[in-house]
Amino acid sequence: MQAKSFIRQIASKGAAGPFIGLLAVYLLFAYIGPSSFFSLSTVQAIVRQSAIVGVTAIGMTIVIIGGGIDLSVGSIVALTTVCIAFTLQAGFSSLLALLAAIVVGLMCGLFNGALITKLKVVPFIVTLGSLLVFRGIAKGASGEQKVDAPLTWLNEFLAVLNQNQNWQLFPSGVWIMFLLAIAVFVLLHYTRFGLHVFALGSNEKTAILCGVPVDRIKGLLYVLSGFFAGIAGILQFSRLTVGDPTAAVGLELEAIAAVVIGGGSLKGGEGSIMGTIFGALLMTTIRSGCSQIGLANWVQEILMGAIIIVAVTLDQLRHARRK
């Protein structure tokens, strides 16, 4: 019974709109595009290509629900790939490289969180600054070069599955994204921390009045966002096979777009993990569909921009009607 109500909860947390949008866009491309678009392998590819943005956007969803923003995640991802490559290059185990990546992500998040809560500077500015700082550190550490690393099992997170692996449906990196999404869903809706994040984002004054340790929660938002950027960095490294200080430029904007398409509000207090995942998939579907029917890159970009604005407008209309 508990499981049933859990599923109903997921369904009720406002992800129906983004899901319908995703389905509509996919079917549209399946209709106008080549017949190969309507196939399992295309779906697998779309989901696989969404994993990095998806994982980053999970962290971004928490931050945005809490009324903040984190612009530094793309730079954290780049710094993480460099860090993994160096660790492997020095002969340490893959597991240690993986841990190092997570630690780097957490430290970056802690840096953001500490500045935001101690200096009382708005998150937009702090993370805009740290976007440059982290990117600079990545470039400095790598001497502005790609950092080579030996091939290990770390490179298989987002690999295309071969014939006898096909029962797994998706590579492990995708399953990691799904597991993290479920974990964060539970964190947001079934713990005190989650309640405090929603309260902080809906009305900070009320949160203070009710004794919510506002600074601690705010700091934790960015630590979590850093953690997810670290995981995304592992996936990014997995795909690149090298440490690249210029990787993931603009990833933060894609992650924010995924959150917003998924029903998140930049005013805080609103957002849905399921919606965010659908938002990330929607963007990849458009990109992949456009290239399949041979549309130029610039057309894709214009389309993507239009979709973001349309999605948010629809969401606002839905809200206005409810009132």
Binding site: R192, A199, S202, N203, A207, G269
Partner: peptide, 21 residues
Amino acid sequence: KDEGVAVSMDIASNLILPSAK
């Protein structure tokens, strides 16, 4: 309106906010 309650949250969340522990 501005401080007493968080209007965009539900009743339960508003009510248990200081006593969630």
